[in-house]
Simulated scan of single mutants.
Amino acid sequence: MSETHVPTLHDRLEQVQRPKANDEAHLFGSRLHAEHEVFTDLGRVQEGYRWSGATGSVPKVGTRVRVKMNRLGFGTVRGYFLAEGGDGGLRFLGLAVELEDPPAKYVRQRRRQVGEGRSSNDPARVFGVEVELV
């Protein structure tokens, strides 16, 4: 009788697809919807939301990080957002990061989104696996 391999969290982290610009992300192979509201009080996070970062703790507001996704560079955590949905009811905590010097492509993309109700100075929304502490 052969054993069936059950994917671990580490296995699934290896398969992460990066968030799309329109607040929907394909994280862990599932489609997630990110709430638009950015908040600063971690006490608002309900039980069941996961932090996908390599470090065990969620960076506090004001912490400097490097956003690895799309080489967005350095920034400061300004708040948090929640993302949920997809297969299996996955729920994740994300970071709202104010970028210090975003790449030109990112700036152009943000300008296009202004017409879709977003502000050009909204912080980037990323998940823990996409950032590292500096």
Rank of each mutant, 00 (worst) to 15 (best):
M1G: 14
S2D: 14
S2E: 10
S2H: 15
S2C: 04
E3I: 13
E3N: 12
H5K: 15
V6W: 09
P7I: 09
T8W: 03
T8H: 07
L9V: 04
H10L: 07
H10D: 14
R12P: 02
L13W: 07
E14S: 09
V16P: 07
V16C: 12
A21N: 15
N22H: 15
D23R: 10
E24S: 13
E24A: 14
E24K: 11
A25K: 12
L27A: 15
G29M: 10
R31N: 14
L32M: 07
H33A: 06
E35K: 02
E35F: 00
H36Y: 02
E37H: 07
F39N: 08
F39V: 09
T40G: 01
D41N: 05
L42E: 00
G43P: 00
G43N: 01
R44W: 03
Q46M: 00
Q46G: 01
E47I: 02
E47D: 05
E47Q: 03
W51Q: 00
W51S: 03
A54M: 02
T55I: 00
T55K: 01
G56Q: 00
G56F: 00
S57V: 00
V58N: 00
V58G: 01
P59Y: 01
P59K: 00
P59I: 01
K60T: 03
V61M: 06
G62S: 06
T63W: 02
R66P: 05
R66C: 12
V67S: 14
K68R: 15
K68P: 11
K68L: 15
M69A: 13
M69L: 11
R71E: 12
R71H: 15
L72V: 04
G73T: 07
G73V: 07
G73A: 14
F74P: 04
G75L: 07
G75D: 00
G75E: 02
T76H: 02
V77A: 01
V77Q: 02
R78S: 05
R78I: 02
G79S: 04
Y80K: 01
F81A: 03
F81S: 01
A83D: 05
G86I: 06
G86Q: 08
D87P: 11
D87K: 06
G88L: 06
G88R: 12
G89R: 09
L90I: 04
L93R: 13
G94D: 09
G94P: 04
A96S: 11
V97H: 08
V97G: 05
L99F: 11
E100D: 11
P102A: 09
P102K: 12
P102Y: 10
P103Q: 13
P103A: 11
A104N: 15
A104Q: 13
K105G: 13
K105A: 14
Y106F: 15
V107R: 13
V107S: 12
V107L: 11
R108Q: 11
R108V: 13
Q109G: 07
R111S: 13
R112I: 14
G115M: 06
G115A: 11
G117L: 05
S119M: 06
S119P: 08
S120Q: 12
N121P: 10
N121T: 12
P123S: 06
P123C: 14
A124Q: 09
R125H: 03
R125S: 02
R125K: 06
F127W: 03
G128Y: 04
G128I: 07
V129H: 13
V129R: 12
V131L: 04
V131D: 05
E132Y: 06
E132Q: 06
E132A: 08
